[in-house]
Design a protein around this nucleic acid. Structure first.
Lengths: 247, 247
DNA sequence: TCTCGGGAAATGTGATCACATTCTGCTGGA
DNA sequence: TCCAGCAGAATGTGATCACATTTCCCGAGA
């Protein structure tokens, strides 16, 4: 096995995206949610090919709803369709990572500040519960549970704002980050991860918009530095095979 | 006819989204591009319902590729699917407008600055041509041509950066703005529109990143003030019928 | 050991059909 | 004049099939 790291496995390999929740609504919606959750928690590695029939069989549904779910996720940047119309999880490179981080820093503090007045007591309680579950995940070294909790924490804040403008944009960014972050955590383990959400919680309780923006920003910067100090060599995007170009 | 402004017409009314270019690639891709162009140039009014079979018939294709195109556009925020799974062009309200403008101001100057080093002589020439066509459109009072040119101008800049992170985010914002701006221009005419792209062109020629960011920002702010000073009363989102809630 | 074909398998695309749900418009009654 | 109710039309969803293209796999040849 001489395959390089993060090189895609042979096509047609089954991809498991099982997810307990999300069992109502149209089938394509359920497939969409399960696929998205699998990406956000990094259950699918970058470069992995996703096929219609393969994913359909792995989920026990017909190819039809999978088609719509894949189209939807790829429109959000979570999957990439090639010139040969084949779909895979996009690979990460330095430039893309930098822009993703920049977009997160621009959008997420803004979204948090705009959501702040909408955060009521119950939501704050849920945020505390999520934060606790993150601590548990970190103690147990459960990377996947940590990533799921981290995602839920951030969007439990942003989604307090009923407007659906900033949230979908930020969701798109997380969708693109998930698989890569997982591969990073996989090399580092959870020991390097720290829970920085207490500052955000304090700012919410104090109704301090500036402090909340700073806490969110610090949380993002921290994750970025974790990458910078650990994975100095990011795979170059130049040496992709011809058929892996974007459509 | 007692229907209020921007109220959706009866379902099933055909929507024309003809577009000259874009005739290669998969059918669902062509439908996607034509649908998107129709939205960006404001050819479809907010509140207008979009049906599978209706759009398919109006484009002369089967409902299948339309289904994927609609799913893709709605994932980008250009269409909204209701709890009854029906699709329409989202209506605008004050909060949404504010967040869209804010996101544009955060993302577009950044995208322009990152694209600046990639703008070569040929692209600059294309930008000049586009700017000329905008002037022609303004003189002729052709709103649709103005909107198409304005879109092409901005993305001819942003897309110089080969990375596909910021551009899709900004595309999503324009997709949501298009129908609303058209209805605004429809009331004002093109006399209120000014071409502010010369500052951007000068900044590009001078390789001045700060000046470019300022020019883009000013262009966005200008459009916003045009709305603020003209359409003070934006339709309230509260009085939407039950079935028009987001899914 | 490596390279080049060639047949088989797998892929995405599009069309068509069936079905449950929802909307529309008319009719009846008060 | 208004409103409830019903029948018919229209809608989105999902399944299945056919087809062109691409990819994979294995063996022949150097």
């Amino acid at each position: 096995m001489k395959r390089a790291v993060d090189q895609p496995p042979p096509l047609g390999t089954t991809v498991t995206v099982d997810d307990e929740n999300a069992v109502d609504g149209p089938l394509h919606d359920q497939v969409y949610r399960r696929l998205r959750h699998a990406l956000v928690t990094g259950r699918i590695v970058p470069g992995r090919a996703v096929t219609l029939r393969g994913l359909a069989q792995s989920l026990g549904v017909s190819p039809m709803p999978v088609r719509e779910a894949i189209r939807r996720v790829s429109a959000e940047g979570g999957l990439e369709v090639g010139a040969n119309r084949r779909v895979w999880v996009p690979a990460m490179d330095g430039e893309r990572f930098d822009e993703l981080i920049r977009a997160r820093i621009l959008l997420e503090p803004e979204a948090a500040v705009r959501a702040l007045p909408h955060i009521d007591r119950e939501r704050l309680e849920r945020l505390r519960d999520i934060d606790d579950s993150i601590d548990v995940a970190l103690e147990r070294g459960d990377v996947e549970a940590y990533m799921a909790g981290n995602h839920r924490f951030h969007f439990e804040i942003y989604a307090a704002n009923p407007s659906r403008v900033l949230v979908p944009l930020i969701e798109s960014l997380w969708l693109q980050f998930g698989p890569f972050m997982r591969s990073v955590y996989g090399r580092l383990g959870t020991v390097a991860l720290v829970d920085h959400h207490v500052d955000a919680l304090d700012a919410i309780i104090a109704h301090d918009a500036d402090a909340l923006a700073r806490a969110i920003r610090a949380d993002i910067m921290e994750g970025m530095e974790l990458i910078a100090t650990s994975v100095l060599t990011v795979p170059a995007a130049a040496d992709l095979p011809e058929d892996r170009r974007r459509a």
